[in-house]
């Protein structure tokens, strides 16, 4: 684990509260606005930041994040710009862990080694690559680990007893439990089923378990956060950004609306265990 990641989860454990993990799409709707949103996230309550990297064919994403990816690509977002965003963020904050999230092909085309080295230098702590299951570990996971970066794996309701050890091996940073079978922004997870699954995974690993997909409100975040070590919220933030736009362009409300959603859900996360 990177120092930032270890320190952050240790601090949260000491405070006995779950982490609030916020996802947004880098470069949506434009670079400037997106950097400002990123910089505002910690003060609004984010403990870990997931920085989305757009892909033309996001097979695991629902309509909100698909649309955000298209806006971001339209605005010229790419891997070097994602690194620029992280460098800009790191000027004021060297503690909040940053995890990039995306699909493999853009990284593969960029060159995996080059990607990992530059990511590390820019101040990135880890990555979630949706289409790289454990069977494909040689591609990026193993090289990332030797570079000292976290490779965060998704576990899902279909990850059965037999498969769980395979999913957990080589996972680092935290385990991302996808609470439903489905795409981002889909149906809400059932809190008691999630609690059961989290307990199940916890028995097999010391890593923190963060739960995401389908969490949209402070109330949901509070109930998920009782059992989980972290709650991931993405589509709700991305939708707030989308709703603030005028003809696809940022408006005076974009930054404030995005951060307002984060603040409000953050209260839910912080009240989870009180």
């Amino acid at each position: 684990m990177t120092q930032r990641m270890t320190a952050r989860f240790a601090k949260l454990a000491a405070e006995n509260r779950p982490a609030f993990v916020t996802y947004f799409m880098g470069g949506d709707p434009d670079f400037e606005t997106s950097v400002n949103i990123m910089k505002g996230l910690p003060a609004a309550g984010a403990d870990v930041i997931e920085l989305g990297m757009p892909f033309s064919d996001p097979m695991a994403d629902g309509p909100s994040i698909q649309a955000a990816g298209l806006r971001s690509l339209e605005g010229g977002q790419n891997i070097p710009k994602a690194f620029d965003m992280v460098r800009a963020f790191r000027q004021d904050d060297d503690e909040t862990p940053i995890v990039v999230m995306g699909y493999y092909n853009p990284i593969y085309q960029y060159g995996s080694e080059k990607f990992l080295q530059e990511a590390k230098q820019a101040g990135i702590d880890g990555m979630i690559i949706v289409d790289l299951p454990p069977e494909m570990d040689e591609e990026l996971c193993i090289p990332a680990l030797s570079e000292g970066l976290n490779f965060i794996r998704l576990a899902t309701p279909t990850t059965d007893e037999k498969r769980l050890p395979k999913v957990l091996s080589n996972t680092s940073g935290f385990v991302y439990y996808v609470s439903i079978n489905g795409i981002t922004g889909a149906a809400a997870p059932k809190p008691d089923e999630v609690a059961k699954s989290v307990a199940h995974i916890k028995a097999k690993t010391d890593l923190p378990i963060c739960v995401g997909f389908g969490v949209r409100s402070a109330e949901q975040a509070a109930s998920i956060g009782k059992a989980a070590d972290g709650v991931v919220v993405g589509s709700a933030i991305v939708s707030a950004i989308a709703d603030s736009l005028d003809d696809g362009k940022a408006t005076g409300k974009t930054l404030t609306d995005a951060l307002a959603v984060v603040s409000s859900i953050s209260e839910g996360v912080r009240s989870a265990r009180t």
Partner: peptide, 20 residues
Amino acid sequence: EEGQFGIFGGRFVAETLMPN
């Protein structure tokens, strides 16, 4: 065994689909 023809092929899918 890995489902590859030389470097081509493989199983680049989301974890949800892997068991299936």
